[in-house]
């Protein structure tokens, strides 16, 4: 729980919100439809997205390390005889046989694009909340 306590008075907050909303409305219509093709945005913390050239060196290193670790997470073709999960719990869309899915160390599987977007924000399994980096290290130790 927690951390919702606001220092300012409620009136100030509602005014701030009003501004936020109206600026959002102004920005939305001009957003290009191909926004995915623009400079990639990285998330040093989950709600703070910035293009690579606006990251500190430390943040760049952390993100690069994460991308490196993600490459160790196997991508395999979905096989319904092995996997009990019929759908990706992130997008709630059923897996198709032969489709590429990513395996986390805890053996939970997701669509590659669904889980990669999440891992870039938070390095935990959405189903069991196991931290992926710790689990990866353990699997190295045991191998």
């Amino acid at each position: 729980m927690g951390n919702c306590l606001k220092g300012t008075s409620n009136e100030d907050i509602s005014l701030l919100r009003e501004n936020e909303r109206s600026s959002e409305q102004q920005i939305e219509p001009i957003q290009p439809s191909s926004y995915r093709d623009r400079t990639p945005v990285f998330y040093p913390t989950p709600n703070d997205g910035r293009p690579a050239n606006q990251l500190t060196e430390e943040e760049q290193v952390r993100i690069a390390r994460r991308i490196g670790l993600m490459e160790h997470l196997p991508i395999l073709a979905y096989d319904d005889s092995i996997n009990k999960n019929k759908e990706c719990v992130i997008c709630m869309i059923e897996f198709k046989i032969g489709e590429e899915v990513r395996y986390l160390p805890c053996m939970h599987v997701y669509h590659v694009s669904c889980i990669d977007d999440w891992l870039m924000r938070s390095f935990t399994c959405p189903s069991c909340m196991e931290p992926v980096d710790a689990a990866l290290l353990t699997s190295y130790d045991t191998n």
Binding site: M1, N3, N47, S122
Partner: peptide, 15 residues
Amino acid sequence: HEPGDDKYGYEKASE
């Protein structure tokens, strides 16, 4: 709350 949003460390990531 988004993970990493918890400046004061009250919440576990799992929550």
